[in-house]
Design a protein around this nucleic acid. Structure first.
Lengths: 103, 103
DNA sequence: ACTCAAACTCTACATATGTTGCTAATGACG
DNA sequence: CGTCATTAGCAACATATGTAGAGTTTGAGT
């Protein structure tokens, strides 16, 4: 049977980056800079999320010839829901420390 | 004053590669493979030859999205003349050895 | 020959996306 | 808990073009 989608640390990082501005289109290259993920991890991940309906993807023409067209990604409604849910879960697992810091 | 165009070993290699099939369009990437020149040497060189009227250049759309458009180059009539002249000069400077090999 | 400035080369970096092939992690099932 | 299959991650490679800056080579004039 098909497995439930597992949300790894890496995937969570990308979802968090996208959730920061849920309606903005983001490029893979920028996301790789922001999350620190290498292309061999990031691009397959984006394609998977896209296939699963959590992201929508669009090609944008390059501004200058000689540069590749850019693939823009954005969270779908399902993607926003997933990201929120998992982000909350992550927060409950590792809550912010407000009073346990010791001098 | 403006100087006469110097034809370096590197430039000569590119001209020779282009002269092999004078009417064919060639890509920078392929020429770099063929001549062994790195991009930082080759592309400025191609642009110079192009500016000087020895090459004509054209952009070609990529076959797949996500890949950059390709810059195609071809010798002009002046370029063919230059390449022939310099190729002959090079042959006279360093002729083929037929009988001087010693065991 | 010598010197100076322009022209040229080269290493490294930057832009962007993607695939390959091996390894590691995960979940289902007994 | 152990095993198996699926999934995910990662380093390296591949595609293509180009720029920046430092150093080298060259030609012109003296």
């Amino acid at each position: 049977m098909n497995r439930a989608p597992n949300i790894s640390r890496q995937t969570l990082g990308v979802l968090a980056a996208l959730l920061a501005q849920p309606q903005a289109w983001r490029y893979g290259y920028d996301l790789s800079k922001e999350t620190g993920l290498k292309s061999g991890t990031l691009y397959p991940l984006l394609m998977r999320l896209s296939d699963q309906g959590y992201l929508e993807a669009e090609w944008r023409q390059p501004l200058q010839p000689g540069r590749p067209a850019r693939h823009a990604y954005r969270l779908t409604a399902a993607g926003v829901a997933l990201a929120r849910q998992r982000a909350e879960a992550a927060i409950q697992t590792a809550p912010l420390q407000t009073s346990t810091v010791r001098p």
